[in-house]
Simulated assay, not measured.
Amino acid sequence: MAVIVDPLRGRTRPVASHPDAEIIDVLTGDHDASDWAVLTGAGMSTDSGIPDYRGPDAAPRQPMTIQTFLSTPEQRARYWARSWVGWPRMRWAKPNAGHLALASLPVAGIITQNVDGLHQAAAEEVGSPSPVVDLHGSLDRVVCLRNGHTFDRDWVQEQLTALNPDFAALTGLDPIDVETAPDGDVDLEETAHFRVLDCPICGGLLKPDVVYFGDAVPPARVDAANRICEAASGLVVLGSSLAVLSGLRFVRASAKAGKPVVIVTDGPTRGDDLATYRSTSRVGDFLAQWASRGIQGDTERLLP
């Protein structure tokens, strides 16, 4: 299995550059929420019960790489067995207060590195008009690697259950009690006998429609995210360590263009030296304040 080197190794938690109230003054003063693009990471979803990879309390994880997934049938069985056990927990996850607060702000757009679909669920609940770009895809879709056929993840779950009727009993795990990783799988020791579903149309390999480590983000998603950032006056990063280039690139581009970059997360990031404003607060707490001030500001602008 490929070993993933932690790009944050040796980095320490920075000191906040300004109090949160002053940063929110910047976000709501001469600007409104629509001036800001938002990039989110796993720290957005921890309050929904989905752990992150690199937060202060995160356990060491070794996520699946695309090279490992494609290498052998045993590795694909390992992934799908772990995903089959973890999917119900991911499926039941609900948007937390941070998702809902962000959805209440009419930002220029949300670019998320998360694959849990919680931004879309929050947008639907609140009625948000802000576009959401799933940079790394979404776990609720499964794609055929041969011909690109797509399938609903719930349907795939039903098929895997039919192929492996006794697997849950053999693992001794209750899907309600297991802890999932950010990409929806769980730790299992014995997975070799799990039966994997192939594409029912062409027999190709099936994988979740997500970008594994070592995989490339589809150009159309990168283009959509770039359009959001280029049209915005600045970038707000929420709950991301920026450990992977797919997210860090937007911070670098905004800084190069002379646009303010706000980073909010309680651990170190690869973009700390590019941040104009840095908060080390929990994302949910920061968003509650921003949403409260932003909504109040919108109301004031509507008064005669």
Rank of each mutant, 00 (worst) to 15 (best):
G234Q: 11
G86C: 02
F250K: 12
A224D: 06
F286C: 07
D140H: 15
C229K: 10
K259C: 10
N96D: 05
V186H: 06
I176D: 15
Q120D: 14
I176C: 13
G214R: 01
V251R: 12
S48N: 09
R82C: 14
D177C: 04
F194H: 07
L206R: 06
T161P: 14
V142E: 02
D6I: 03
T265K: 05
S240M: 07
R221S: 12
F250G: 08
F69L: 11
C144P: 10
V178L: 06
P73G: 12
S104C: 11
D6T: 08
L188K: 08
V132D: 01
V251K: 13
T46R: 10
D177H: 08
S138P: 04
R278G: 14
S83E: 08
I110G: 02
Y212G: 11
I4H: 03
R278E: 13
W87P: 09
V244H: 10
K259L: 04
A162P: 11
G86Y: 02
D140L: 04
E158A: 15
L70M: 12
T191V: 15
D47L: 06
A16R: 09
E125G: 11
H18N: 13
V244A: 14
Y277Q: 07
D298M: 12
L205I: 11
D209Y: 01
D35T: 14
D152M: 11
G43H: 08
